[in-house]
């Protein structure tokens, strides 16, 4: 090969490597910009008042999103109550009992549910709960988020249980322990960290969902006194305020967004710590 050709090849390789590096930078850039803007526009408005007060009526400045923050926690808690038992037990079935053919079908169905747009969940739960109950409620919102959680939890549970060595299950069976006890006390406990990780990630995901809540939990400018009333939520409040013509509401939208993203990122960071811990014990 001629020396020129070799140089050309090396130059091409170097150019493409640089291009790939620049692309990676471009992918990260929006994240950096979003976090920067959130901190710049949101930080000045997040104070004690914002975290502990109800929204003020239109035209008055001040007020906060206390009800929306609490509402988001309530909705996520309801979602966990619905999504985790179903997803967890379903995942256990796939990994401990299932047959290849059934597992394939369940996985396909779970992936389809995972890919179902969140707005579709919103109108389905609207038809299912809001119409018969004649009004939006925290139950409906929690159900919508919970249904979104089911396939997420199911898939991670199955994946995590598959990592538990078979010798553990065999040892338990050899001791004469019934299978259900061995699954609950040995297999599940071994995979515990991974499953908690999956549940936390699912929580982070649904905590930021807006579309399923629009018509199910609706919104509320006040405290909700019962779960059958409409309830405020952080993403929904951000959406309402973001589109409003009032400067003060827009300012609060940024503040709310900062609180929401800190919550979501904290969950994600918690997950990183958890998984790092488990990988260390795994190496032992």
């Amino acid at each position: 090969m001629k020396p020129f050709q070799n140089q050309w090849r090396k130059a091409t390789s170097a150019a493409i490597s640089t291009l790939c590096f620049l692309c990676a930078l471009m992918v990260i850039l929006p994240l950096a910009l979003i976090l920067f803007q959130l901190a710049r526009l949101g930080a000045s408005s997040v104070d004690w008042n914002f975290l502990t007060h109800l929204p003020k009526p239109v035209g008055e400045t001040g007020g906060g999103m206390a009800n929306a923050i609490v509402g988001s926690f309530v909705l996520v808690a309801l979602a966990v109550l619905i999504g985790v038992p179903v997803g967890l037990l379903g995942g256990i079935y796939l990994s401990e009992f299932g047959s290849p053919r059934l597992n394939w079908a369940v996985r396909l169905a779970a992936d389809i549910l995972n890919g179902t747009p969140s707005i579709v969940w919103g109108i389905v739960v609207y038809a299912l709960v809001v119409v018969p109950m004649k009004g939006a409620s925290a139950y409906a919102g929690g159900l919508a988020l919970g249904l979104i959680m089911i396939p997420l939890v199911l898939r991670t549970t199955e994946g995590m249980l598959a990592l538990v060595p078979n010798s553990y299950r065999e040892a338990a069976l050899a001791l004469g322990i019934p299978k259900w006890k061995s699954v609950l006390h040995i297999v599940l406990r071994t995979a515990g960290n991974g499953i908690v990780t999956g549940v936390l990630l699912a929580c982070a995901r649904v905590a930021g969902e807006t579309a399923p809540l629009l018509f199910t939990a609706s919104g509320n400018q006040f405290w909700s006194h019962s779960l059958s009333e409409p309830i405020a939520s952080l993403p929904r409040q951000i959406y309402t305020y973001a589109g409003s013509p009032y400067d003060d509401w827009r300012r609060q939208a940024w503040a709310g967004a900062l609180v929401l993203i800190l919550f979501v990122l904290a969950l994600n960071a918690g997950v990183r710590v958890l998984t790092r811990g488990s990988s260390k014990t795994g190496a032992k």
């Binding site: 994240l31 910009l33 979003i34 803007q37 959130l38 982070a204 995901r205 905590a207 930021g208 969902e209 807006t210 579309a211 993403p235 951000i238 959406y239 973001a242 939208a253 940024w254 967004a257 929401l260 993203i261 979501v264 990122l265 994600n268």
Partner: peptide
Amino acid sequence: AIPSVILGLW
């Protein structure tokens, strides 16, 4: 992990 509504706001 960034919620859709925050991306929309930005």
